[in-house]
Simulated scan of single mutants.
Amino acid sequence: AMSGIEARRHVLRDGAAIRIVLGISTPVDSGSITVTMPQRIVLAGRDGTASVSDDDHNTSWRARFSEEVMRSTVALEATMPLARLTLGDLANLEVGQVIDFEETAQSRARLGARGQTLFVCEFGKLGQNYTVRIRHPFDAGQDFIDGLMPAGAGRA
């Protein structure tokens, strides 16, 4: 195990490897742990021979790892498209100014985590609380195609 300056100076010269970066955070600070396993280690069995298919070991490891991943917490961000403005319009905005948005904007919200859009959603309100309802998974290819078309064209 290495940390600090020693870890930064270490150069991997072992060829292909698996690299797992685990983020750790507390209310006070955050950091990361990087686990690097050379491919030759991953493929070798415990006795030093080539890997033998040990289904019980693989299944228990996969279950344990999946359980840890599923318990990890991630901050979600929901954003709603407001309007398309020119840079000139944006530069002329003033404090207190109201920006109108399209009627369909609430139904085109996006839910994402760590800078990646995951779902297309719709904003709503239930009593005193605001809500986000997932409509379907985000499709980056379709979003790119929709971005090429003029606003409103091709949308039902």
Rank of each mutant, 00 (worst) to 15 (best):
1 A>G: 09
1 A>Y: 07
2 M>K: 05
2 M>N: 03
3 S>I: 07
4 G>A: 02
4 G>C: 04
4 G>D: 05
4 G>I: 02
5 I>L: 11
6 E>M: 01
6 E>C: 00
6 E>Y: 02
7 A>I: 01
8 R>T: 06
9 R>F: 10
10 H>Q: 10
11 V>P: 10
12 L>A: 15
13 R>Q: 15
13 R>E: 15
16 A>G: 08
17 A>S: 13
17 A>E: 06
18 I>H: 12
18 I>F: 10
20 I>M: 14
22 L>V: 06
22 L>H: 12
25 S>W: 12
26 T>N: 15
28 V>F: 12
28 V>H: 12
29 D>T: 00
32 S>D: 06
34 T>Q: 09
38 P>V: 05
40 R>N: 10
42 V>Y: 01
43 L>A: 05
45 G>K: 03
45 G>I: 03
45 G>S: 09
47 D>T: 01
48 G>P: 00
48 G>E: 00
50 A>G: 11
52 V>M: 12
53 S>N: 14
55 D>G: 10
57 H>I: 02
59 T>S: 10
61 W>C: 11
62 R>G: 02
64 R>M: 13
64 R>Q: 11
66 S>L: 11
68 E>A: 11
69 V>E: 09
70 M>K: 14
73 T>H: 02
73 T>I: 08
74 V>S: 09
75 A>L: 12
75 A>W: 11
76 L>G: 08
77 E>K: 03
79 T>I: 07
80 M>A: 06
80 M>I: 01
82 L>A: 09
83 A>D: 15
85 L>A: 13
86 T>Y: 12
86 T>D: 14
87 L>Y: 07
89 D>E: 14
90 L>C: 08
90 L>V: 13
91 A>Y: 10
94 E>G: 12
95 V>P: 12
96 G>H: 05
100 D>V: 06
102 E>T: 01
103 E>K: 09
103 E>Q: 13
104 T>K: 04
104 T>D: 15
110 R>I: 08
112 G>T: 05
113 A>G: 09
115 G>Q: 06
116 Q>W: 03
117 T>Y: 08
117 T>S: 08
119 F>V: 05
120 V>K: 03
121 C>V: 05
123 F>N: 00
124 G>K: 04
124 G>H: 05
125 K>F: 06
130 Y>D: 13
130 Y>H: 00
133 R>I: 04
134 I>A: 10
139 D>H: 05
142 Q>D: 14
142 Q>Y: 11
145 I>T: 04
146 D>A: 03
148 L>S: 00
150 P>F: 02
150 P>H: 01
151 A>K: 07
152 G>E: 00
153 A>K: 03
154 G>D: 04
154 G>T: 00
